[in-house]
């Protein structure tokens, strides 16, 4: 009975999200783009998330380096630590961890915001006043997530590498230029570009799921909390699914 309900809910959610995605693309190319709202959302979603992303990225680079160091020394390749950390951060850890933190912060925020607007009937009021709420609320937020997450990933990678540099120098001595030379010497376009491209998909998924969960929030204030929570959970799962899909695609294209 429970399995049947779960399956029905999963299929219903999937169908609803697909329809919501279609509606997003339909509204995306409709004229009168809400540029001011888009810029505002970019500021809120991107710029305001930088301290949190920066802090976690710094700690992640530092800890990853310090955790890898003993193993690298054990295998006699301690000199390859910058290259190893660089590849790990740029290829996988940077985009995925940043996207997960982004989902936690922005996905829940969008879900809660739109949910509260839904339960307080502000969205309905917008429709009555002649404003397209979907275009104003959803398209701008999804596009902001789509464009801001890659920027956050890039800055997070840079801060993470700096954290790694400090981690390397806690128990060793490597100059700044040598560290970054070793990092970039061992990087290829096939490391940077797929990671950069998949971060767009991560951002798009976080924005879309947050908006979907908030836009169809119900059951009053309880529903707002549930929307925020499920937005984070679903977005996190979708991020991992997209990551799995991305690695399969890059592998199939031979750029892995």
């Amino acid at each position: 009975m429970f399995a049947r309900e779960s399956t029905t809910r999963l299929l219903s959610e999937t169908g609803g999200l697909s329809a919501f995605t279609g509606r997003f693309f339909r509204n995306l190319f409709k004229p009168r783009f809400e540029a001011a709202e888009f810029v505002r959302q970019c500021l809120l979603i991107g710029y305001k998330s930088l301290p949190l992303i920066g802090l976690t990225a710094f700690i992640m680079g530092l800890v990853l380096t310090m955790q890898l160091r003993p193993s690298m020394i054990e295998y006699g390749v301690a000199s390859q630590l910058p290259a190893m950390v660089g590849i790990a951060i740029i290829r996988e850890i940077g985009p995925v961890i940043t996207a997960l933190i982004f989902a936690g912060k922005i996905g829940s925020s969008i879900g809660a915001e739109l949910g509260s607007m839904k339960v307080t009937e502000q969205i309905d009021a917008m429709e009555v006043s002649g404003t397209n709420p979907f275009k104003y609320l959803v398209v701008t937020r999804v596009l902001a997530c789509l464009f801001m997450l890659p920027v956050l990933v890039l800055l997070g990678d840079a801060i993470s590498l700096y954290g790694s540099y400090i981690g390397v120098n806690i128990k060793g001595a490597t100059s700044f230029s040598l560290f970054f030379t070793q990092v970039f010497d061992n990087l290829a376009f096939s490391d940077v570009l797929p990671a950069f491209i998949k971060s767009f998909f991560f951002g798009w998924a976080v924005g879309l799921i947050g908006c979907y969960k908030g836009y169809f929030s119900s059951k009053g204030t309880e529903g707002v909390g549930r929307s925020a929570n499920s937005a984070v959970v679903v977005a996190s799962i979708v991020i991992f699914l997209l990551d799995l899909l991305a690695v399969q695609v890059t592998d199939a294209l031979g750029i892995n």
Binding site: C42, G46, Y47, L50, P150, V151, L152, L154, L155, D157
Partner: peptide, 8 residues
Amino acid sequence: FVMAGLAF
């Protein structure tokens, strides 16, 4: 913010 990310 955007310029910093793009610069990197």
